[in-house]
Nucleic acid binder design. Structure first.
Ligand SMILES: [Mn+2]
Ligand SMILES: [Mn+2]
Ligand SMILES: [Zn+2]
Ligand SMILES: [Zn+2]
Lengths: 136, 136
DNA sequence: TCCCCGATCTGGACTTTGTCTAATTCCCGG
DNA sequence: CCGGGAATTAGACAAAGTCCAGATCGGGGA
């Protein structure tokens, strides 16, 4: 499956999102790269040739994608949020010097011994972040 | 052991921090409460009676405490950093609706199956965040 | 085809969190 | 009681994100 713009439109419809020009471009930026991107980076990618999509639309669209479950948020850097086209359960490796963020498959990772949740609470997600840096 | 201001001074000296008036107040805010506080909250606490400590000093001091290993940073909310007086290994439970953040003792939690680190990298820390919300 | 109208997009003002700097104040050691 | 390095400060600045009122888009019906 190639990440053509037509396929992006289908993907959006499948998530109950009306596929507009801007939304298709933003989805294409994320899915064709399969990378973690900040709003800023999405903005830059989508407006490389000439300015086409406003800041407001980039932020609104990323929030829409998030609500519809098309992307996931990764909170790892206090200064910006990353958006992740990979919504399968997985964890993250964060290189603190470079800011590089990569996926860790959740398949083989086991987390045990967590306490019971407070009553009437449900888990929305478990984020595991391994922070690494160059050996001194 | 009570969290008196005198004890705060001793604590600071033990971490190679010159105990000034402002630093003692900020340490006292964090340690007497044993809670996760944002810079803003620290600022408010320290300046309740009348303004005593500037914004610049609050930020500078929290960063100093962080560098000296007196507190830890917790990154769970995209809009602000929390400072944690508990530097023992532990994880966090985050209630997404309320913003309430609480500790999970790392003692009984086991994480296994993490992949080997890239060469020349060392782990700086492993953050585990359980995001929960009120059952629908 | 043409028009209509709800959905979408937009510029730009605004807010919040955090950083920076040059000037002042503090306080310890002599 | 100085002198001077360390610490603090006000306020300007920056970056990420939000918000709003007005402009534009575009697809279905006449
Ligand atoms: Mn999906
Ligand atoms: Mn910020
Ligand atoms: Zn990821
Ligand atoms: Zn904690």
């Amino acid at each position: 499956m190639h990440y053509t713009r037509d396929n992006m439109a289908t993907l959006l419809r499948g998530h109950d999102i009306n596929p507009t020009h801007q939304r298709i471009e933003i989805a294409h930026a994320l899915f064709s790269r399969q990378e973690h991107l900040s709003a800023d980076q999405v903005m830059a990618i989508v407006n490389t040739r000439h300015s086409e999509t406003s800041k407001a639309t980039v932020y609104n669209t990323l929030k829409l994608f998030l609500d519809k479950g098309l992307v996931r948020e990764v909170i790892v850097d206090p200064s910006k949020v990353f958006y992740d086209p990979n919504t399968l359960p997985h964890h993250h490796l964060y290189e603190v010097d470079t800011g590089k963020l990569s996926d860790i498959d959740a398949m083989h990772v086991r987390i045990s011994g967590l306490p019971d949740l407070p009553d009437g609470m449900v888990t929305e997600g478990i984020d595991l972040i391994v922070r690494v840096r160059r050996a001194a």
